[in-house]
């Protein structure tokens, strides 16, 4: 465990010094700072626009950070041969994979903290109030990007960074749409089981990123939700279980991998 934590710390330390990452963070912060410009446009919907855009941008930045961080994580270690010095120490490969993932999560937590604080600052300056529900949205998006980091790390055990970028990006998009797709299909009586069942199976197998998007009731606070706590708890558990699944699968492949 010591070794895992040491690898996590080293990964975090390197990640926050990486320029790409800093640029994305900077862009996200910049856009957040630009959001008040929308208030000129929005006559009535200042809060809606600000909240939805802010959360949307943070989600997108979180996803980009997760992908860009993790596509290179293992290939780069091999390329720089650092992995040889690490694996020649009494470190098992699953320690390495887990350490890398924890480092990625730590980086994401840091990024979300930074963006979240900036967002709430903007919110306060624009609306003179901070909606504490926003924190709920931020936390769920943090778990969402952690899941995405798991997906990307999994792909990185066998795919090149470029291929991985599209694989992970595609998985993220599909994982965001799939539930909506099934929802639409289930409401349309004309769609037969030949279409419905495969989609249902896909929904059960693919990582469902849409689960973590709870911004609608934050933007429309009058909404009454059914079993919200149960939903949030189960969704976080879902994220945790799915991440474990991805990590075990990553270890399985990585154990076989020759570098």
């Amino acid at each position: 465990m010591n070794a895992t934590l040491a690898i996590a710390r080293a990964t975090f330390g390197e990640a926050i010094r990486k320029r790409v990452l800093l640029i994305i963070l900077l862009v996200a912060l910049l856009i957040l700072l630009v959001t008040p410009a929308f208030e000129v446009l929005a006559v009535r919907e200042q809060k809606t626009i600000l909240t939805s855009f802010g959360l949307g941008i943070i989600q997108l930045a979180g996803a980009l950070i997760a992908i860009i961080l993790c596509i290179n994580m293992i290939p780069q270690e091999i390329e720089r041969r650092t992995i040889y010095t690490i694996l020649s120490k009494p470190v098992l490969r699953h320690h390495f994979v887990l350490g890398k993932f924890l480092g990625a999560m730590q980086t994401l937590a840091f990024a979300f903290l930074l963006m979240g604080v900036a967002f709430m600052l903007v919110m306060y300056l624009t609306l003179r109030e901070i909606d504490p529900k926003v924190v709920k949205g931020l936390i769920m998006f943090f778990f969402q990007s952690s899941l995405l980091a798991g997906v990307t790390l999994f792909f990185s055990t066998f795919a090149s960074p470029l291929v991985n970028f599209f694989l992970s990006g595609g998985t993220f998009l599909v994982g965001n749409i799939l539930s909506n797709f099934l929802n639409t299909i289930e409401k349309n009586p004309q769609v037969g089981s030949m279409t419905r069942i495969p989609v249902q199976i896909l929904v059960l197998l693919m990582p469902n990123f849409a689960n973590f998007n709870v911004q609608n009731p934050i933007i429309n606070p009058e909404q009454q939700l059914t079993d919200e706590t149960a939903y949030l708890v189960q969704t976080v558990a879902y994220g945790g279980v799915y991440i474990c699944l991805l990590l075990v699968a990553a270890v399985l492949i990585f154990n076989q991998r020759e570098m």
């Binding site: 929308f38 446009l41 929005a42 006559v43 919907e45 809606t48 626009i49 909240t51 939805s52 855009f53 959360l55 949307g56 989600q59 997108l60 993220f172 998009l173 965001n176 749409i177 909506n180 849409a210 998007n213 911004q215 609608n216 933007i219 429309n220």
Partner: peptide, 14 residues
Amino acid sequence: FAGFREFMAGVLWV
């Protein structure tokens, strides 16, 4: 679908 649903709604409404 990628998280900007409400935002797009807001902008279109503006």
